[in-house]
Amino acid sequence: MNWILGFIILIAKLGVVLVGLLLLAAYLVLLERKFLGRLQIRYGPNRAGKFGLLQPFADTIKMLTKEDTVPAEADRVLFLLAPAVVASEALLIFAVVPFGATITLWGKKVPMVITDLNVGLLYVFALASLGVYGVALGGWASNSKYSLIGGIRGAAQMISYELSLGLSLVPIVMLARSFSLVDIVRAQADYPFILVQPVSFMIFLISAVAETKRIPFDLPEAENELGAGYHTEYSGMRFGLFFLGEYVNLQVLGALVTVFFLGGWRGPLLPPVVWFLIKVLAVAVLMIWVRGTLPRLRYDQLMHLGWKFLVPVALLNIVATGAFLLI
């Protein structure tokens, strides 16, 4: 009986997380548009429902009902596959993210994480690397110059920043002495790591923004030079999947920052899940603020920043942390 209950709980968790992620992604879009609007002294969407609250539904219906076109000269199979890779990769990362303290239901301990892998961090990196495929394949398969350039930029950018992303987390692992994300949260019981690892935090944040291809690192889809970059040729729900992937990634980013640096679900008064949500949203809002403030980098500046600044600084940080731990 036990495993049946476990299975039901697992399915329920999966369902709740999936629905939550998708709903949150939809409303993150609205949040971003509203918040960005206010940053630019305008209202943002306010026509669909009160305060534009139904806007995500309108957008979803629009994208679902739009024609799904495939360019005549495109590599059909890859073209159709690429958006799915992006969206599923983003969703899968969430499997190892703990979003609350373990609770007890009907006498059974239910961890607030879908699966607590002991190599969770590696899993996160593995999947994040897979995200490159979606972008590169989408760009390649479209058989369009804009898409191709966007795809190549995307591949180069994501591979470059993966390095500093990974290196920035080495001190965290050193401090937590575990690859499990649950353990990392537990390791921050006394103080969040942001306090002892601000450099690491900054590098991770910058690299993660670059990984999610958001402004100021949105070169792969730079509108004013590449149309829409790697997803220029996409329409309807296939474009929707790229879009979804981007906003799920935003949540993943928020979640990872929360887990690695902000102490995870911990917090006073409010329930852990709520604290977790608040932290994730705070990171998301920060990202939107960045988008509303900073201009896009040039390609050479992007590479320069990644290779010549972040990677060396991250390495120094590892050495410094190692030295500190030794002492």
Binding site: G37, R38, L39, Q40, I41, R42, Y43, W289, G292, T293, L294
Partner: peptide, 20 residues
Amino acid sequence: LATGFATTFKHLFRKPITEE
């Protein structure tokens, strides 16, 4: 950077100029 972020932050509290 800080100036930029401050500017956009201040915008948050301004009345939108949009004519509906």
